[in-house]
């Protein structure tokens, strides 16, 4: 009998099969990672305890946003693009200016006793405020803190705030520096319960 050759398997349609799978995965999956402004909500209020906070007026920066998306920052009607500079000035404060927040000496690791301003940002919005405007205001407030932290980190440690954040996982020194920067400019944004004031309803 003649020696029969083993026939080769036809692999011509392999590409088609692979393409089919590829297209299936392209359609059913998503690539985008979620990005956004990460915030922490205050814990639920305890009905048995009523906290009375006595905060001096000079330490509070009040931001009101009404239903027409207009902003009132510490009594002035301003545009959202002007907010960041205003908040920065307030947070930074000035020991010689009695209208800006007071300072309190605090023990910070690596820096010793350091004057930290007692600033609080109070944000209040209306039920009719658009989400878009709310995010813009939040963004500007966070941006003001980030810029100040950045300036401070560069001046004290020679690194930007972002660099410190990136290195914090790997190096203990960076982590300590990051903590110090955060303590010098602590993010204090308080959100009041919204009111149904003014505008559309």
């Amino acid at each position: 009998m003649a020696k029969r050759e083993i026939q080769e398997i036809n692999a011509g349609s392999m590409a088609d099969i692979a393409f089919l799978l590829l297209i299936f995965f392209l359609v059913t999956t998503t690539m985008d990672t979620d990005t956004g402004l990460i915030r922490r909500l205050p814990p639920p209020p305890d009905p048995d305890r009523i906290d009375e906070f006595d905060v001096k007026k000079r330490n509070v920066f009040e931001v009101l946003v009404n239903a027409n998306n207009q902003i009132l920052a510490k009594g002035d009607y301003i545009q959202v693009t002007e907010l960041r500079a205003k908040v920065k000035d307030f947070i930074k404060s000035d020991p010689n200016n009695p209208t800006l927040p007071e300072f309190k000496e605090e023990e910070i690791e690596g820096l010793g006793l350091f004057p930290v301003s007692k600033q609080i940002i109070s944000l209040q919005n209306d039920n009719g405020t658009s989400y878009d405007m709310y995010i813009k205001v939040q963004n500007e407030l966070v941006g003001a803190y980030n810029e100040l932290r950045n300036e401070f980190a560069q001046q004290k440690f020679g690194k930007t705030y972002q660099e410190l954040q990136q290195q914090a996982g790997a190096s203990e020194k960076a982590e300590r520096q990051l903590d110090a920067v955060k303590k010098v400019y602590p993010q204090r944004i308080s959100e009041a319960e919204p009111k149904k004031i003014g505008g559309a309803e």
Partner: peptide, 21 residues
């Protein structure tokens, strides 16, 4: 969310270089 003690939230936003009025 506060009532349910789910406190870590994220306002999902996209990146932009500059915000407008």
């Amino acid at each position: 969310l506060r009532k349910a003690n789910a406190l870590k939230i994220n306002y999902s936003t996209k990146k932009t270089d500059k915000i407008k009025n």
